[in-house]
Design a protein around this nucleic acid. Structure first.
Lengths: 166, 166
DNA sequence: CAATCTTACTTGCAAAATACAAGTTAAAAT
DNA sequence: ATTTTAACTTGTATTTTGCAAGTAAGATTG
């Protein structure tokens, strides 16, 4: 079974064209950014992101990212409503692409988040390997239990806080 | 006069969002690839590129790339019909972005052009600085005369060849 | 345990972007 | 003087996007 498969409808075999066909829209990379940098894992979190993606577009993009093997889903066993989205190795490999796009815009456009940019610029390698590190700790199977447990604790806290506000 | 200017309509200040709003479509980066890697400079060359961009879309993308300061135009003084498109420093700074996108797709998708990919993978820095080098030689003002002269000679050759075919 | 929330979606429709075909205009070549 | 070429523009159909309003399954609350 081949791990790579040619998309028969592709306009050309150029690797840049492949990237552009998969990632070349106004939302896909922002979703990946939210997963990679902000640790977002649920539909609701993506919906709440600052840029304000529409719910139908979000559903469509998630579907496409899954189809391209960039993310995967699993159910949260502690709350059957929640779907947990995770980056695959292919997805986490987009870290250098994101990094270069951030650095380019930071150099040539008027943008915010200079702290992030400085960290990236200081040592790209270090930055992307730190991303990988966190991903390996939270998203991969071996340590899943810890991850789910801390998620559950956070949920309990959130509920308690909400009650407190009413 | 500030070299960077905030786009008031931007969805967020995140640098990745800026990149995605400027470059996030199916054609812009392909045009930049053709300029950077294939040395394309004219409308007709872009139109003839393998992926087959539609003429109205091409005109629109070129206009937007100019508006964003990524490319510039000048008239070819030897042929008043021709417009010469060039990458600006901001445009050539996209080389690392292109490189990472190519390497990502080459690693995870079924793509062609393995020679290019190997060269990129062997030494990214070397590759992007070679791109810069060529750009500095052909696109910048100081050596323009040589560039235009060789263009004229190529035109003459092309005409001679066409006549030969009839 | 019935009513109410939450979460992750889907559906319908208007507006915008894209693609395709067919012009148009200015300059160059014949 | 006529034809060709280069760089576009102008319709128009199709596709994609965005917005508002559902819906269904599961969890929480009184």
């Amino acid at each position: 079974m081949p791990r790579k498969k040619a998309d028969s409808k592709r306009r050309s075999g150029c690797p840049l064209n492949a990237s552009v066909e998969i990632l070349g829209d106004r939302w896909s990379l922002l979703i990946i950014r939210d997963m990679m940098l902000r640790g977002f894992r649920t539909y609701k979190e993506f919906l709440g992101s600052y840029e304000g993606i529409a719910t139908n577009i979000l559903a469509d993009r998630l579907r496409k990212l899954i189809a391209h093997g960039i993310i995967t889903t699993e159910k949260n066993p502690l709350d059957g409503r929640k779907v947990i989205y995770s980056l695959t190795p292919k997805g986490i490999d987009l870290a250098p692409v994101l990094t270069e796009m951030v650095l380019w815009a930071a150099a040539h456009e008027d943008t915010a988040n200079q702290a992030l940019v400085h960290e990236m610029r200081k040592d790209k390698e270090k930055f992307t390997s730190a991303i990988r590190q966190r991903w390996a700790e939270t998203a991969r199977a071996p340590k899943r239990f810890r991850s789910l447990r801390s998620q559950r604790l956070r949920d309990v806290d959130a509920r308690r806080a909400r009650r407190g506000q009413h």
